[in-house]
Amino acid sequence: MTTIPVLEARGLTRSFGNVRALDGVDFDVNAGEVVALIGDNGAGKSTLVKALSGNLALDSGKILFAGGEVELGSPSEASRLGIETVYQDLALAPHLNAAQNMFLGREIAKPGFQGRLGFMDNKTMRAKSREAFDELGATVRSLSDPVGSMSGGQKQAIAIARAVAWAKGVIFLDEPTAALGVVQTRNVLETIRRVRDKGVGVVFISHSMPHVIDVADRVQVLRLGRRVATYEAKKTSVEELVGAMTGALDGAHS
């Protein structure tokens, strides 16, 4: 295949004191593809996601977006490229409502002079939020209640909907199913497929191997700050993945 990955990392390193969190890690994700990123605790998954979403400075290495080298100095630079992240801790403002969270930092101004004074078009933002939630099949009970008063699943739905709505290139989902029930998990996995079908590259981080095999196209395994293996999801097994994560299969594969 000659496709250029929408986002590619080459030889990223980053140390915290004596600990090499990233030790020359490579990574790539294509447009319209779900890549699962797996690894044991401390393998460097979250650090890699932070680096690729503009939340972490690197010691060395290159990040390429659609083939061109980029510097991701801040989250807003990543956002500008269409890279969105759903964090484990969700990163919503609990006192704001769903629509305000959806558009936070990207508000739609009222037309004309009022807009220039800082007035916002709340009606349009609410309508668009509603559309986005419906598109995902997300249950968001109320657009005007603060999200802090909602259940974990609803917050998750809002956070994912927000990322999906703005992600044009790549979306990172850090443990998106960790806190969810069966129905909601199925929803999220369905959402991931739908986003992929829109042509966005999805990076899915999870400890749940069945989910990984269910939804991913490719699986990339991190261990000790390096990528140690890449598998086609359809041709691998839970045992093989666990083996790669723990290092039990070292030597058997190259």
Partner: peptide, 11 residues
């Protein structure tokens, strides 16, 4: 409400 989340979305 959440300084960190505001920062992450570019506020």
């Amino acid at each position: 409400s959440n300084e960190e989340s505001a920062r992450r979305v570019g506020v």
